[in-house]
């Protein structure tokens, strides 16, 4: 009954450096099913960021295949990848990455601009999303007027607005204190409970502990892939 949202086969990525070809990712195989909550872990230089960029369709692999919702996207042209990023993937970044001069409503509605949705339905949907992350009434505020935790909620609302197949969060709590981090992780847990696939990239074990599955990278390989009891079990 579970279908694969992500299936990568022999995925490799090499960078051209002054010292020659540097393989950052050396033939990775991984399948993530709909509704999973996966943490991708590993120290810096392990290849997890490269993997994340490939999963997010921000980059193209040098070898292997990547099936996103059953479509091989490995060698898709840039414009089609942009459409995938718009419709299929919701990004949450460590630095929130809200547009500082746009209202929260406009920030949340931004993906819909690129799906050619008109202004009124866009605003309506953006307000709904803000309410979903507990920020109703902030529609016209600017990002600088709210706290970091609230900004990350706005970013999550933005990621959710196009009903993506998966949420890709890159160190989502990296800029937050531990209390706020817990709140954000709770929100991810909640979204996962609603059936949304969540992929978390982190190097913090206690953040990764919220996920139900932990995939560990080292030197461009997956070194462990564990099902865990899931969130909350070893919360601090």
């Amino acid at each position: 009954m579970s279908e694969a949202v992500i299936r990568v086969v022999g995925l490799g990525k090499s960078y051209v450096t002054a010292a020659g070809l540097f393989p950052a990712l050396k033939g990775v195989d991984l399948t993530i099913d709909r509704g999973e909550y996966v943490a991708i872990m590993g120290p810096s230089g392990s290849g997890k960021s490269t993997f994340m960029n490939l999963l997010g369709c921000l980059d193209k692999p040098t070898s292997g295949d990547y099936f996103l919702v059953e479509r091989n996207v490995a060698q898709m042209p840039g414009d089609e990848l942009a459409i995938l990023r718009n419709r299929t993937i919701g990004f949450v970044f460590q630095g929130f990455n809200l547009l500082p001069r746009s209202s929260l409503e406009d920030n949340v509605g931004l993906p819909l601009v690129y799906s050619h949705i008109k202004r009124e339905p866009r605003r309506k949907k953006a307000r709904e999303m803000l309410a979903r992350v507990g920020l109703e009434g902030y529609a016209n505020s600017l990002p600088a007027r709210i706290s970091g935790g609230q900004q990350q909620r706005v970013a999550i609302a933005r990621a959710l607005i196009n009903s993506p197949s998966l949420i890709l969060a890159d160190e989502p709590t990296g800029n937050l204190d531990s209390h706020t981090s817990e709140e954000i992780m709770e929100l991810f847990g909640q979204l996962n409970d609603e059936g949304i696939t969540v992929i978390l990239v982190t190097h913090e074990a206690d953040i990764a502990a919220h996920a139900r599955r932990q995939v560990r990278f080292l030197d461009g390989h997956i070194v462990s892939d564990l099902q865990t009891s899931g969130r909350g079990s070893n919360a601090c």
Binding site: G78, N86, R87, N97, P111, Y114
Partner: peptide, 16 residues
Amino acid sequence: TREIGVRMAIGARQRD
């Protein structure tokens, strides 16, 4: 630049 990156990540094509 960062804003452009964000816009691209959430689905802006080059021509957008």
